[in-house]
């Protein structure tokens, strides 16, 4: 029997906010996501879901405890090393699509790959096109990003998250701003990624309908993990 390794794992994670008052947003959190697992973090508003995700995504470094990501202890990495990890190994999808409005859809998708610098510009364009096809957006490639509908933009953001073949995709309420039909589409895409490519996925959501269809639900309450 083979044990599936953890892509990301936290040990006794604590997070305090100091402003406006001293407030502990994460309390001794121990969570993990396995390779190929599609997990959802749920919990009431203000329970610390986003806070946890930002810490896991390396954007927030102001915490105590340890995070192990793909074998590295994140608390030991420099700011630049963390940026490189985000670039190469983490694909991000936000609630608001956050594309660069002056750039085309294709350029937006390519942006992380250009930073990575592993491939030539042509290879990157091909790769970006391939991801757009996967998401049914190939005919939008040369439009400016802000000309697309909200649902389309969110799919572009997913394509961008996929461009460097990340170890994990993280999303903070990626369907929070979409109607049910578009939410469905986004969910199906994520599901397909997991099934076809064994993609690890960690999504914050308060949509229980969405969460129930994932492999595992992590419930947060007042900064504490209730069940995994």
């Amino acid at each position: 029997m083979t044990t599936v390794k953890n892509i990301i794992e936290t040990k006794n994670l604590n997070k305090f906010f100091h402003d406006p008052v001293e407030f502990q947003a994460l309390k001794g959190v121990n969570v993990s996501v396995k390779q190929g697992e599609f997990a959802a973090i749920v919990g009431a508003s203000g329970s610390g879901k986003s806070t946890l995700l930002y810490v896991l995504s390396t954007l927030d470094t102001d915490y105590t405890g340890n995070i192990y990501f793909d074998g590295d202890n994140l608390s030991l990495q420099s700011k630049d090393q963390l940026a490189a990890i985000r670039n190469e190994k983490i694909g991000f999808v936000f609630q608001f699509h956050y594309l660069l409005p002056e750039f085309t859809v294709l350029e937006n998708v390519a942006m992380p790959a250009i930073k990575l610098g592993r491939y030539s510009q042509e290879q990157i364009d091909d790769l970006a096109m391939e991801k757009l096809k996967m998401l049914g957006l190939e005919d939008q490639a040369y439009k400016r990003a802000n000309k697309l509908s909200g649902g389309q933009q969110q799919r572009v953001a997913i394509a961008r998250a996929l461009i460097n073949d990340p170890k994990i995709i993280m999303g903070d309420e990626p369907t929070g701003n979409l109607d049910s039909k578009n939410s469905e589409i986004v969910f199906d895409i994520l599901k397909e990624l997991k099934e076809k490519y064994n993609q690890s996925i960690l999504i914050v959501t308060h949509d229980m309908n969405f969460a129930n269809k994932t492999d595992r639900i992590i419930t947060l309450r007042d900064g504490e993990v209730q069940n995994q």
Binding site: K79, A83, R86, N87
Partner: peptide
Amino acid sequence: MPDIAILKAVGYKDRD
């Protein structure tokens, strides 16, 4: 600012 945030989130360094 949103652009800067995205660029940072997808791995662009402060230096960039």
